[in-house]
Design a protein around this nucleic acid. Structure first.
Length: 437
RNA sequence: GGUCCCAUCGUCUAGAGGUCUAGGACACCGCCCUUUCAAGGCGGCGGCACGGGUUCAAAUCCCGUUGGGACCGCCA
């Protein structure tokens, strides 16, 4: 029988859930789900000065938005609680006392410090990075308990991972250098070591560690920018891992099925916004219409567009007609504003332009508006015939129509747009520009 | 400075000694769709950091060089 896989994500609430943290959480979560194990959330708030409730909330919201639900953690509890370091002080002290009594640690001031003996080779086999070893004399003594009575990271993490029965410690590569120190502690305590798997770092475009300078500081900002959680998930999963077979766009379920911690690579990767946008676009295309509509609504509202004046069917049609255009929900909302109201069109088109095209468009529109059938096919057929008869290039009609009706040079096929806008609305808009009559 | 880690197109990656004149994706650049592109189709550019080994054979293994990065707090 094999023991149940137990992994944890242990952020400190001294900042928002950023891309790096989300990436680490994601890989832990994937491994737990793939193995049918448990994903534990532990809040490392031993730095009481910098930890805040707001950051803690941001971390919860960020994880939830990404769909990384945890099996044990603060609030929901679990058999290995408490899950907040600030509530586990007595545990840290009892193990520290043990080391003190055995003479393996000493007091200096109020602090408890572990004595590192020279002449030892500390090594471990990382699932991702392979065999790593360092000589103990390159390590300094390790502070276990700070003078204020709170534990240090390197100490608390060992006690917590052990007492929470964590089987795989999956974290950022920046922790490799800490691992030998922690191993010394595991050995001194005589407790079982977990498996270690370090993850490659995510760098900014300048190849430096991702930070505020690189933009978003919270994953929730990606939500506001119009990214889908499954797209960010997909993108993040691709940083340091790939399912092979040239598969790049996949669902969360597929990732769970295909993921293996052993397949993670060692090379740090650069966060590429263009690729994220592309993956987001692919996921928007794959969404079912109802969900897509619900996802775009808030962005229309943010633009003050009157969604309440239209039926859900019409709104869904609007998104359908966009047929893959737009890389974010925000763009999709912006690109379709003219379907919800004429106002932005009025602002975008200057009167002089209408003067120039009126002569060509007027006779055409006067006939078009009276067409018996009002669908894109009939509209287009009519336009083609008209342009052939009058020896006017179709372009001379289609483009001005597009600009007058949508206020932009880019849109879906103009006859599809006209069909969806409807005869009355089209009539209203053309009349406004003085094209009819 | 010390210790540790990394190294395939600009970017994300496939590649676990021969099937690699290195595959895919993003980006970029063309062309087409002659109603636009922010949609779609087709094509192009572009990489194994360098030098030594090992081997019949190396992107793949070893060593070195160079270049990046991380850690060296009573932060996590």
């Amino acid at each position: 029988m094999t023991e149940e896989v137990r992994v944890r994500f242990a952020p400190s609430p001294t900042g928002n859930l950023h891309i790096g943290g989300a990436h680490t959480a994601l890989f832990n979560w994937l491994w737990a789900r793939h193995e049918g194990g448990k994903f534990v959330l532990r809040i490392e708030d031993s730095d009481r000065e910098r930890s805040t409730k707001e950051y803690e909330e941001n971390i919860y919201s960020g994880l939830e938005w990404l769909g990384l639900h945890w099996d044990e953690g603060p609030q929901i509890g679990g058999p290995y609680g408490p899950y907040r370091q600030s509530e586990r002080l007595d545990i840290y002290h009892s193990y520290a006392d043990k080391l003190l009594n055995e003479g393996l640690a000493y007091r200096e001031g109020e602090a408890v410090i572990f004595r590192v003996m020279p002449g030892e080779v500390v090594s471990f086999d990382d699932i991702v990075y392979g065999h790593i070893e360092v000589k103990s004399e390159t390590l300094k003594d390790i502070v276990l308990i700070k003078s204020d009575g709170t534990p240090t990271y390197n100490y608390a993490v060992v006690i917590d991972d052990f007492t929470m029965a964590i089987t795989h410690v999956i974290r950022g590569e920046d922790h490799i250098a800490n691992t030998p120190k922690q191993i010394l502690l595991y050995k001194a305590l005589g407790i079982k070591l977990p498996e270690f798997a370090h993850l490659p770092m995510i760098l900014g475009k300048d190849k430096k560690k991702l930070s505020k300078r690189h933009g978003a500081t919270s994953v929730l900002e990606y939500k506001e920018m119009g990214f889908l959680p499954e797209a960010l998930f997909n993108f993040l999963a691709l940083l340091g891992w790939s399912p092979g077979d040239n598969r790049e766009i996949f669902s969360v379920e597929e990732a769970i099925k295909w993921f293996d911690i052993k397949d993670v690579n060692k090379r740090a990767s650069v966060f590429d916004m263009d690729k994220l946008r592309h993956i987001n676009q692919e996921h928007i295309k794959r969404m079912d219409p109802e969900r897509r509509l619900e996802a775009v609504k808030p962005f229309w509202v943010a633009l003050d567009l009157p969604i309440e004046k239209h039926s859900p069917e019409y709104l869904a049609k609007v998104l359908e007609i966009m047929d893959g255009r737009g890389q974010t929900l925000k763009e999709l909302a912006e690109y379709t504003d003219y379907f919800l109201t004429f106002e932005p069109v009025k602002e975008r088109v200057d009167f002089e332009y209408t003067e120039n095209v009126r002569e060509v468009l007027r006779p055409f529109c006067n006939d078009m508006i009276k067409l018996s059938r009002w669908d894109s096919k009939a509209l287009e057929e009519f336009a083609r015939e008209w342009s052939a008869n009058k020896k006017v290039p179709l372009k001379k009609i289609a483009m001005p129509l597009r600009i007058l009706l949508t206020g932009t040079k880019v849109s879906p096929g103009i006859f599809e747009v006209i069909e969806l806008l409807g005869r009355e609305e089209t009539k209203k808009r053309l009349a406004h520009w003085g094209i009819l009559g």
